[in-house]
């Protein structure tokens, strides 16, 4: 059997323990999928694989036990799924054009969760749209609120939903549900003065818990959606660490631009001798220093008036 494993991997298949057998990897940007596609995946698993399906940590699926010679058929069978999930493809019926940049993962977000501050899936899809296909190793995760259920702080880019709660003092009946709750579940940014809530803006993390607790809608979410962008978290054998805050109260457009710019930076600074031509973005930033990274990624980024960017990051 003559197989170009480099091409196989780039096509989102895996070299497995069992000789001649591969596994097909299906990315699901934003982690939300129409149930009808599961039937197609089931058919592929039963026809070409060993009848099982693995749910990956990055919210994709992996169909193991596929004979490598069936890759073209599997790619054809995957075509409606790829199209249905709006994946950027180079040519139809050839499967996924890249696998380096990983599936953009997201918590369930405001489609379902009462705590979420935005639609994580649709933002994830917007990011997928501009960064895929790409061979560089970048991991992105989106989470609806600072609870960070997706563990976005373990990723190169963690996008945490924020809102700027709007307070209409006239509607406040002084029940202090927001004040108590902020103390217990958030950061204690609220206090009670003259029978109304007073916010310490420095402490407010924009989680929106106060909005959820208010019985009169004195607290409501801002029309604008904000995010906390945390960067360069990672797992791995070498020096794992959690992502640190880069910009808070940042807007969606700026985040997309920063992620896009990151690819140019990787292009420039990646270790050309890295094994397999693959170097994780976090290690590149370690090498060039944060300031150089920052200079590159902020090109043409116009941060909003509320955005707060850190000067330096000490991971």
């Amino acid at each position: 059997m003559d197989i170009n494993t480099k091409k196989l991997k780039k096509n989102a298949f895996r070299v497995t323990k069992e000789r001649g057998k591969t596994a097909a990897r299906i990315r699901v940007p934003g982690g939300h999928i129409d149930a009808k596609y599961l039937i197609m995946l089931q058919e592929i698993a039963e026809k070409y694989g060993n009848g099982t399906l693995h749910i990956t940590t990055r919210q994709g699926f992996e169909i193991p036990g596929i004979s490598m010679k069936h890759i073209p058929e599997v790619n054809k069978a995957l075509q409606p799924v790829i199209e249905g999930l709006d994946i950027n493809q180079i040519s139809p019926n050839t499967g996924y054009p890249a696998a380096g940049t990983r599936n953009v993962a997201a918590c369930i977000g405001n489609n379902v969760c009462p705590f979420a501050n935005y639609n994580t899936t649709s933002f994830a899809k917007k990011i997928e749209e501009v960064i895929f296909p790409n061979d560089y190793h970048v991991k992105i995760a989106l989470t609806g609120c600072p609870n960070d259920c997706i563990k976005s702080r373990m990723h190169d880019f963690g996008i945490i939903g924020m809102t700027k709660p709007q307070y209409e003092a006239y509607r406040c009946i002084g029940c202090q549900a927001c004040v108590d709750n902020c103390k217990k579940r958030a950061t204690g940014a609220l206090s009670f003065e003259n029978y109304k809530a007073v916010r310490d803006h420095e402490r407010c993390i924009g989680c929106g818990e106060c909005v959820g607790k208010c019985p009169t809608s004195a607290w409501t979410r801002s029309h604008e959606k904000y995010y906390k962008l945390v960067i360069m978290g990672r797992t791995g054998k070498k020096n794992p660490r959690i992502a640190r805050e880069f910009i808070i109260w940042v807007d969606e457009e700026s985040i997309i631009k920063i992620i896009q710019n990151t690819y140019g930076y990787i292009e420039e600074y990646i270790d050309k001798n890295a094994s397999g031509g693959k170097e994780h973005i976090g290690y590149i930033v370690d090498r060039t220093g944060f300031q150089e990274y920052k200079k590159w990624v902020l090109k043409n980024v116009k941060l909003g008036a509320k955005a707060v960017m850190v000067e330096n990051i000490y991971w």
């Binding site: 405001n110 979420a116 639609n119 609806g144 929106g208 909005v211 809608s217 409501t220 979410r221």
Partner: peptide, 15 residues
């Protein structure tokens, strides 16, 4: 109708 002013994100309020 107050757009996006409901208790939860992207929900509306009528008052």
């Amino acid at each position: 109708l107050f757009k996006n002013k409901g208790t939860y994100s992207d929900t509306n309020m009528v008052r």
